[in-house]
């Protein structure tokens, strides 16, 4: 898991919108529940990805006007804000 990135959104619907667009572009990302260890409040969902996939995720979210709730990197079994 170390080095893996988690991009969290405020709504599962927003995750789907971004994820489906990326899938259409050939990038398949795992849909996940955001763990409490990120410190994000509420019940968030997000996608897990590698560092080089971060830019397209951010670009697609921005193009849709969707605000990313938080981006995290896995370090020593914990999620650290990017």
């Amino acid at each position: 898991m170390t080095g893996e990135i988690l991009v969290a959104f405020n709504s599962l619907n927003q995750v789907h919108r971004v994820r489906r667009k990326l899938m259409a572009d050939g990038l398949y990302l795992d849909l996940v529940r955001v763990p409490k260890s990120t410190g994000l409040p509420g019940c968030g969902y997000g996608v897990r990805l590698s560092r080089d996939e971060l830019a397209p995720v951010r670009a697609v979210a921005e193009s849709f006007g969707i605000v990313i709730a938080g981006s995290f990197i896995a370090r020593s079994g914990d999620w650290t804000p990017l």
């Binding site: 405020n10 709504s11 599962l12 619907n13 927003q14 409040p41 509420g42 019940c43 968030g44």
Partner: peptide
């Protein structure tokens, strides 16, 4: 309940 921003008393703006 919406399954999003569950810590807020108000309905999400999303």
């Amino acid at each position: 309940g919406t399954g999003s921003l569950s810590h807020l008393a108000e309905m999400p703006a999303i």
